[in-house]
Simulated assay, not measured.
Amino acid sequence: MKTPKDDRPSAHAPRSNRERTEATRHALLEAARGLFVEKGYGDTSTPEVSVAAGTTRGALYHHFIDKRDLFRQVLQRESQAVREDILAATPPDLSPRAALILGAQAYLRAMTMPGRTRLLLIDGPAVLGLSDAIAIDDAHAGDTLHEGLAAALGERADVDIASLATLLSAAFDRAALEIDAGADAQRVGEAMVWLVERVLAEGGKRTKTK
Score class of each variant (00 low, 15 high):
1 M>V: 10
2 K>G: 13
6 D>Q: 03
8 R>K: 12
8 R>D: 09
11 A>F: 12
13 A>K: 12
20 R>D: 01
24 T>A: 14
26 H>S: 13
26 H>P: 02
26 H>T: 12
27 A>P: 02
29 L>P: 00
29 L>Q: 06
30 E>Q: 12
31 A>S: 07
32 A>I: 05
34 G>S: 05
36 F>L: 11
39 K>A: 14
58 G>S: 10
58 G>R: 11
61 Y>G: 08
65 I>R: 15
67 K>V: 03
70 L>M: 10
72 R>W: 06
75 L>A: 03
75 L>S: 06
76 Q>C: 15
77 R>F: 09
77 R>A: 13
78 E>Q: 04
80 Q>R: 12
82 V>S: 01
83 R>G: 09
85 D>Y: 06
86 I>N: 00
88 A>M: 05
92 P>F: 01
93 D>L: 05
104 A>E: 07
111 M>L: 11
112 T>E: 12
115 G>V: 06
119 L>G: 04
124 G>L: 00
127 V>E: 08
127 V>C: 07
131 S>D: 14
132 D>G: 05
144 T>W: 10
146 H>V: 13
147 E>M: 08
148 G>P: 00
148 G>Q: 04
150 A>S: 15
152 A>C: 02
155 E>Y: 09
157 A>R: 01
157 A>N: 10
159 V>W: 00
161 I>N: 02
163 S>A: 13
164 L>D: 08
168 L>S: 08
169 S>H: 11
172 F>I: 01
172 F>H: 13
174 R>A: 15
177 L>V: 14
178 E>Q: 14
179 I>K: 07
183 A>F: 11
184 D>N: 14
185 A>G: 08
185 A>K: 05
187 R>A: 15
189 G>D: 06
192 M>K: 03
194 W>L: 14
197 E>S: 07
197 E>P: 06
198 R>W: 09
201 A>K: 11
204 G>P: 02
205 K>V: 14
205 K>M: 05
206 R>A: 13
208 K>W: 15
208 K>I: 15
210 K>T: 12
